[in-house]
Structures are given as C-alpha cells and as structure tokens.
C-alpha cells in the first residue's frame, strides 16, 4: 500500500500548497509514489489515518487548535508546510498591535467569527516532525523532505546561510550597490530565488541555527541602518519570539 498523505491549511494564503501543485513535471510521478487522500485544492473528502500530514498556515483561533490536534492524532508524521506554519511568517506581524485595534481597523466592527488570538506557529500546539520553511516553500525542498520521510530518515535543511547559494549562482552581493540583504543570516535552500530575480533576501526562510548576530548588526549599522530599521527589516518574516527565529 502506498503511503497516504494529506494537505491541510489554516491561516495562510495556500500558496505553499500551490507550490506543490506547480511541480507539474514531477506531479504524476509523485502520484505513483504516494496516495493523496486529502487535498482541498484538488480533491474532496476526508482520508482517515495518514502517514504524512502537510499542514500550511498559522494558528490564530480556538477552533483551529482543535482541528490541528485532530490532524495530529491521525497522522504518523506532521510537517509544517511554509513560513506561516513554521514560524507564523508574515501573520506574526499582527502581534504588533492589539487584536481589537486590528479588527476595528480592517473590518470596522467586532463579531464572534473574528475572535482571534495572535497568530502562532504549529509547534506552539502540537509536535512537529519536520519543517519546510519559506514563503512560499521551494517545491524541490518539499520533494526532498517527502523523500527523506519515505526513506525513514530525518529530513535535513541546509545549516548554512543564503550567501552560499548566492555565491554559487555567481550573483553580485547586493551590499556592493548599497542595498542591504538578509542573506547572511537566512537559511539557504531556495537557491537564491529572489536574488536571481534581481531583488534582495528578506528572510522568508527564517534564520540559520547559529546566526552571527553581533557582526551582522555591525555591518547593517555601517550601512546606515538604525536599530529600529534593522528590526523592521527582520519583522517581515522573523517576528521576535515566534517559532524558531
């Protein structure tokens, strides 16, 4: 029997699930390998016990917590799919103001359906067996993590920073033309996608395990950033005290 996998989403844009669907050339081969029993974006129905649950999105309502725990109970492995599930991602920006103030600002009213708490990563509520960082995830990394779990070994994420993939792509350093970049402290694995596109790294994959914060801060300050500006740079994807960042 083929391993049964399912996809689930909470508070998020579902872009990471789309990244899986975008693996067009590999997708049919993937179907030979595993059975997709639950995937709201392509099929209907509830699949029962699962070998691997890929869970996207952050948790910010009580009913989400209940649903997440049910998924955990029927899944042998639970994988945080994407930044929102892994570190609360951009959702964590909501922690900057009170939920009441935010609701008033966005919706102009208070209703019971909008009762939320500050968005949190999955690991705040359930055990997470593996993580696929990024906003959105990298399809190749999804395949690598899936392969590792199917082979029964712990998936490994790169421990080095994005500078490595940027250098191997022979891209010029953005600091050279005075543009700061979060690459030196951000976990590699995206193959420097944004830099290849002419942008800089904004840290969507989260920090490496041992970021060299002190020398990096010094470099940012030498490039004219104040402490507030540095924190703002990080806040997009790396709100302090959220997830692993």
């Amino acid at each position: 029997m083929k391993p049964r996998i399912g996809f689930f989403d909470f508070t998020g844009c579902e872009g990471c699930q789309l990244s899986v669907l975008n693996l067009e050339s590999e997708f049919l081969e993937l179907l030979e390998l595993v059975e997709f029993v639950e995937f709201r974006e392509v099929i209907t129905g509830n699949g029962g016990a699962l070998d691997i649950a890929f869970v996207e999105g952050s948790i910010c309502r009580d009913d989400e917590v209940v649903r997440l725990r049910t998924i955990r109970e029927r899944s042998r492995n639970l994988v945080a799919l994407g930044a929102c599930a892994d570190t609360a991602g951009v959702n964590a920006l909501a922690t900057a103001s009170s939920p009441e103030a935010l609701r008033q600002k966005i919706y102009g009213c208070e209703t019971p359906l909008l009762k939320t708490f500050p968005p949190s990563p999955l690991s705040d509520f359930v055990d997470v067996d593996a993580r696929i960082p990024g906003c959105p995830i990298d399809g190749r990394e999804f395949l690598a993590v899936l392969q590792a779990l199917l082979m029964g070994r712990p998936p490994e994420l790169p421990a080095y920073s994005l500078c490595v993939e940027c250098k191997l792509a022979e891209l010029p350093c953005t600091f050279e033309h005075g543009e700061i970049c979060l690459g030196p402290v951000t976990r590699a694995g995206c193959d420097a996608l944004c830099l290849r596109g002419g942008d800089r790294c904004r840290g969507c994959r989260g920090l490496i395990d041992a970021p060299r914060s002190a020398p990096y801060r010094k470099i940012l300050e030498q490039n004219g950033l104040s402490v507030d500006e540095i924190l703002r740079e990080f806040r997009t994807f790396n709100v302090i005290d959220k997830g692993r960042s």
Binding site: E26, L30, S161, C163, K167, C173, P184, V185
Partner: peptide
C-alpha cells in the same frame, strides 16, 4: 559571518561534501 563567501569564491579552495541524491 560564517557565510563561506571567502572559500566559495576562492579559485583554489576545493573542500567538498558527498551526498546521495535519489530519483523521485
């Protein structure tokens, strides 16, 4: 910063790792 730019750009650095990459 431990970024490794120095060794990755060095014409004579050659240290490498060996990995197994599986087909899908």
């Amino acid at each position: 910063l431990g970024c490794g730019a120095c060794t990755l750009l060095c014409p004579s650095c050659y240290c490498f790792n060996v990995q197994d990459r599986l087909d899908l």
